[in-house]
């Protein structure tokens, strides 16, 4: 009974911390995106609410909460409600398997950084793929249930796009899994210690994964589900108030998540750029875990910045270009990547 309570308490605390990290990340991402956009366009961006405009995301949320929640006449009421729920749930569910660092000892007990109890769920990568796959349901359902042609088109497009890029994502991941020989995220990260980053071992895979994540998160240049020019706002046209806010929040959480996953898979995750003995900390100490967490978050924020940077630089592709790129360029490239990696692993192991 005691151990059960202990585990339960541990779970609750961990979930609270991870949720706090995710929400803070989303809020700061919203603010950062507007700032980056402004700076690229030679503007200053939000600077009125709070010191340096830092409270802007809270003002946004307050505004969204106070808005009227409109459900269109003849919309499918149930699915219209479920759509944003799925999106947000899926966005958070991924955090179940993401490790934020190695482990540390608390009163002689091993505590793992990450919600999962075992350090190394051996389906970690598969779970992430599955959850990003589920994301389609949220977008497509909300597009279809709105009873609006623009929303429907946005939803249909997104399902086609996400399905095609899911494949690319999976193929890219095979390279990493071949190199590591494990599905566990902790294994994958520890394998990259000492600058043996998968980015250097498997650059094509990184490129494919990066592009696929842009498509998966529906960010420019692949933001077809919501292209403003043709589809008003795509799948979330008919959403208002906090339901729209949830889509907005989920988008930024997703950006943070894919950046996190990418830094785990390809950029060495939480491994320090130098051996940990240099600062006199042993594996398992609390301070080392904290530094690892910071290293991971820095890498992630750089990737998030890259997402914003790309969004405000590149125009949207045409739909046929997107499909061409996915099936005619990235699919062969992904297969080639697997073969090359397999040969490399066979020769050097």
């Amino acid at each position: 009974m005691e151990t059960f309570l202990y585990i339960l308490l541990m779970f609750v605390i961990k979930i609270a911390i991870v949720l706090a990290i995710a929400f803070t990340a989303a809020a700061s991402a919203v603010f950062a995106e507007r700032k980056v956009a402004a700076y690229i366009q030679c503007r200053i961006g939000p600077n009125r609410v709070g010191p340096k405009g830092l409270l802007q995301p809270f003002a946004d949320v307050l505004k969204l909460i106070m808005k009227e929640d409109i459900v269109p006449y003849e919309a499918n009421k149930v699915f219209h409600k479920i759509g944003p729920m799925i999106t947000l749930t899926v966005a958070f569910a991924i955090y179940a398997v993401i490790p934020f660092g190695d482990f540390f000892y608390l009163n002689g007990e091993k505590v793992y950084l990450g919600i999962a109890t075992s350090p190394n769920i051996n389906i970690g990568v598969l779970f992430i793929l599955a959850m990003t796959g589920l994301n389609i349901y949220g977008v497509t359902l909300s597009g279809w249930s709105s009873n609006n042609k623009y929303s429907l088109l946005g939803g249909v497009r997104s399902s086609a796009q996400m399905v095609s890029y899911e494949i690319v994502m999976g193929l890219a991941l095979v390279g990493v899994i071949l190199i590591t020989g494990s599905f566990g995220l902790t294994d994958i990260v520890n394998h990259q210690d000492n600058w043996k980053w998968n980015l250097f071992l498997n650059p094509i895979g990184f490129l494919l994964y990066l592009t696929a994540s842009f498509a998966e998160t529906n960010r420019t240049p692949f933001d077809f589900p919501e292209c403003e020019q043709e589809l008003v706002n795509g799948f979330n046209t008919e959403y208002s108030g906090m339901k729209f806010g949830i889509f907005y929040l989920a988008e930024y959480i997703n950006v943070f998540t894919v950046s996190l996953i990418m830094s785990l898979l390809y950029l060495g995750g939480w491994t320090l750029p130098f051996p940990s003995e240099w600062i006199g900390l042993e594996a398992g100490s609390f301070w080392l875990s904290l530094i690892q967490l910071v290293v991971l978050l820095v890498k992630t924020s750089l990737l998030v910045f890259f997402f914003f940077w790309v969004r405000w630089t590149i125009p949207r592709f045409k739909y046929n270009q997107l499909m061409d790129l996915g099936w005619k360029v990235f699919l062969p490239l992904g297969l080639l990547n697997i073969i090359l990696t397999a040969i490399g692993v066979y020769c050097f192991k």
Partner: peptide, 21 residues
């Protein structure tokens, strides 16, 4: 990729350009 890299350098340059606001 080459064109995207070109675009990214341009927008990075403008990030540090004087602001008009």
């Amino acid at each position: 990729i080459p064109e995207i890299a070109k675009g990214l350098t341009l927008s990075l340059k403008y990030m540090f350009a004087p602001k008009f606001t």
